[in-house]
Amino acid sequence: MLHKPKTARWPGYCCIFITIAFLTLFLALPLTIVFTEAFRGGIAAYIAAITEPDARAAIFLTLLASAVSVPMNVLFGLAAAWALTKFEFRGKSLLLTLIDLPFAIPPVIAGFLFILFLGTNGVFGPWLQSADIKIIFAVPGILIATLFITFPFVARELIPLMQEQGQDEEQAAISLGASGLKTFWHITLPNIKWALLYGAILCNARAMGEFGAVSVVSGHIRGATTTMPLHIEILYNEYNFAAAFAVASLLTLLALVTLVIKSALEWRLKREKRLSAEEPAAEEGVIP
């Protein structure tokens, strides 16, 4: 082992200092502000702000948006990942690109797409009107816009992982006589469970926090078609800052919980990857 050239320490301290300063300004301070502003009026005002009927309706609608988008996009993610990673077919890479499309469309334009598609003057407008179904400026519009925005999250996590894992295990199960569903349940699902959870967590965070797309299609009827982010906007524009931050603090808690689960899952996924990478090496070591 050669003697390492002596390196100065100041660049390291500089980097750490810049990092801490930058992240304090951009991450820690905004985070602190949410909570200090939320409790500015005292605990009683805080509780009142998050339990008043309009806030409760907004919380309910946000939970509903997540309760619809997460299962729908998990189901889609599983189907898409199965079709795209277990089979070869023409147009596969086109399909892969199209799945990412919602990420490339600005949220406000995404909301506008559904006004053109399902609004009164839209393609299906006359038909929906005669059937007396209101989608845009109503709850269904909010749910559909959220579905669109969160569309790629689960599929995006599953496809690269399942691609890497290949299909040997599934083929073995099938050739031993297991049914397709059984193979999926006992072989595939255990292999992808953490990535699936990871995608679902990200999907949930985005579903609960989406603002632009939902804002376009909501119609902003207080207590009826406002999600939590929209409720925050209304309160903030009324200069009711403490209440706005009180509702915002709930979403911030959600974000923090998401981050904790996310880094725990990342750690686990990394470890699993490392273990599976070490396995063949260990086997080789046994042979001689």
Binding site: L27, E210, A248, L251, T252, K262
Partner: peptide, 22 residues
């Protein structure tokens, strides 16, 4: 710090907006 870097991704944009403005 490493986990916190993802905060802007996880935090709803409306919340980031009012926090940064304040």
């Amino acid at each position: 710090v490493d986990a916190l870097v993802d905060l802007p991704f996880a935090l709803p944009t409306a919340v980031s907006g009012i926090a940064l403005t304040t």
